[in-house]
Write a protein that binds this DNA or RNA. Structure first.
Lengths: 345, 345
DNA sequence: GTGAAAGCGCTAACAG
DNA sequence: CTGTTAGCGCTTTCAC
């Protein structure tokens, strides 16, 4: 591949002139410029970003480390981040932490070795004590997405507690008192906060507080399926369930299906995280939908701000999701049932 | 950040020794080694991959450019590719072509500037004439995934025609003669080949060849929805439909739903590409499922082979998908209906 | 308006 | 077994 030197020689100028026309970094005589541009075209010259990065002691790439690209949730997030970053001239280097602290550390270290200008991370359970401080120690700008930790850095995460409260209140309004919660991997704040939302409403509304109603779904479809299978096979099964992330909703639906339980007839279901097909599924799923585009945009803005030298105290931004009120909560059914009950005198 | 020089000084050795212990690239006396390792630890030294890449005139990163990360299909593919590459010490830099030749070119050029060791690309419609030759001209190893072109490079793509033939044969076996096909973006070989499969069976089985049965879905849900809405509102509507990719299946289901047409009662449906929730949906979707993990593995193997200097003629690998025979084709229903018909004497 | 030259942090001969 | 040194291809003072 041609180098700047080749271009300079062919154009009869110095490399520094070539550099300056390439980067528009100082005035160049029109004809000099065009001679250089010609030479570049003739040689199919492409600038070498690795040399450039070394000379400038900085890259235009950011690392994006998330836990499972196979989850469309992260696919959408990464896509939005990538677009946002791409339009500002940054490249994205990708990493999958597998939600495992050890692996996360490896992935992040590799990104540090690549001298990423900044890092976007969906932290695993104990990242607050390991990965995060390490990155910070190296002075690389870091913003956490999706899950937050108590670490001292910028974070852009969804609002977790309140939307779940709304969901559970809704179920309670419909008359349910025995409501199960399928919850995520231990240690993630999304798990904790969403569960807190559930617990708060259970307490506030005087619902059944049976600990057996809190099902360990480990943020995975298979685990959720097992847990639900187990919990809903019992005679005292819950009449409703709130599922705390998308993967677990799939598992929950599978389990309910295997048990022959109808939604919302036998059990009302509401969930955190929406699906592209949520309005296609019968019953249509009542779900809380995150605004991933906004989350991505905010995170990128914050990160590039830091890269550019912003020096405010760490901020925590909350993105408010929206309730997609559909049918799996059993609203319609509830209405019909009420209609059949004779009105009190 | 500490450099090798800092480490060398602290350890009282030369940079070359540091380099060699870091890379295990020549024998080093045990105690020298440990002095160096110490120094590294004390300085929290991390090797600078950009300097290293410059010195070695090669990087350990590969570019992965696909058309829409929001599609779980590509999410899964990229995830598999990333894992495969990561385990071999390569980093992935991500690009979204948006299936638009101009944008694809930009994205790929940026990767070239980064001096990626190789490129994995899901080529857009006219990539065979533009992007592909350009990359090849720069001498960067390239393997095409998902779609193939007539370009002279390695390609790993799904088998398209035969699986669709199977799908349409199945519909014909069930007695359908008026079968619609919702097809993808023009110019993609996946579109062409899958459509060819449909046409071949239509001709072979003497089915209705009405051109109005070929619906333009542009590989997108919204376009598919429109096309299906239009085609199935007519009195002579098809009794079955084969949808040629996942996004369009969603659009098709939406349209059918809006028209109040039941699957498979009013229209039998089969599709190319499976979904994680395909067995949850009612009716369960009869679909052709791709083996993305194999596709990723093969593509990476081929690419790294080229990076390492393999010099065989370009190969075209076909990954055979598997039929997930479920209910939307109407098999069960067909069986029940047949059962109701009195047997001939 | 343009060029010379000193690095950026590392690798890899080459020498000892 | 270890050190010296010449680059890798670019950016960026500093001088002219």
């Amino acid at each position: 591949m041609a180098t700047m030197d080749d271009v300079a020689r062919l154009a009869g100028v110095s490399v520094s002139t070539v550099s300056h026309v390439l980067n528009s970094t100082r005035a160049v005589a029109p004809d000099t410029r065009s001679r250089v541009e010609d030479a570049m075209a003739r040689l199919a010259y492409r600038r070498n970003d690795v040399a450039r990065s070394l000379a400038q002691r900085k890259t235009r790439t950011v690392g994006v480390a998330i836990s499972a690209l196979t989850n469309p949730y992260f696919g959408t997030l990464v896509s939005a981040v990538n677009e946002e970053l791409g339009s500002r001239g940054y490249a994205v280097i990708l990493g999958d932490t597998g939600d495992e602290p050890g692996h996360e550390a490896t992935v992040v270290e590799r990104m540090l070795d690549q001298r990423v200008a900044g890092l976007l991370l969906a932290p695993s359970a104990r990242a607050g004590e390991g990965t995060v401080p390490q990155v910070l120690a190296h002075g690389v700008p870091l913003v956490l997405v999706d899950r937050h930790t108590d670490a001292d850095c910028d974070q852009v995460v969804p609002l977790n507690r309140e939307p779940v409260e709304d969901l559970v209140h809704h179920l309670a309004d419909l008359g349910h008192t025995r409501i199960a919660a399928v919850c995520g991997m231990a240690g993630l704040d999304t798990t904790t906060e969403r569960l807190d939302g559930y617990r708060a409403v259970v307490a506030a509304r005087g619902l059944d507080e049976d600990p057996a109603l809190v099902l360990p779904g480990h943020s995975r479809a298979d685990a959720a399926e097992d847990a639900v299978l187990h919990a809903f096979a019992r005679p005292d099964r819950p009449s409703a369930v709130v599922v705390l992330n998308n993967a677990m909703t799939i598992g929950t639906l599978r389990a309910l299906d295997r048990l022959g339980l109808a939604v919302p007839g036998d059990v009302a279901l509401v969930c955190y995280d929406d699906f592209e097909w949520a309005d296609l599924f019968r019953p249509r799923l009542t779900a809380v939908r995150q605004d991933l585009t906004t989350m991505a945009r905010r995170a990128v803005r914050l990160l590039l701000g830091r890269v550019a030298g912003d020096d405010h105290p760490p901020v925590l931004e909350r993105i408010t999701p929206s309730l997609q009120h559909r049918e799996s909560c059993g609203c319609r059914q509830a209405a019909e049932r009420d209609a059949r009950v004779p009105a009190r005198p």
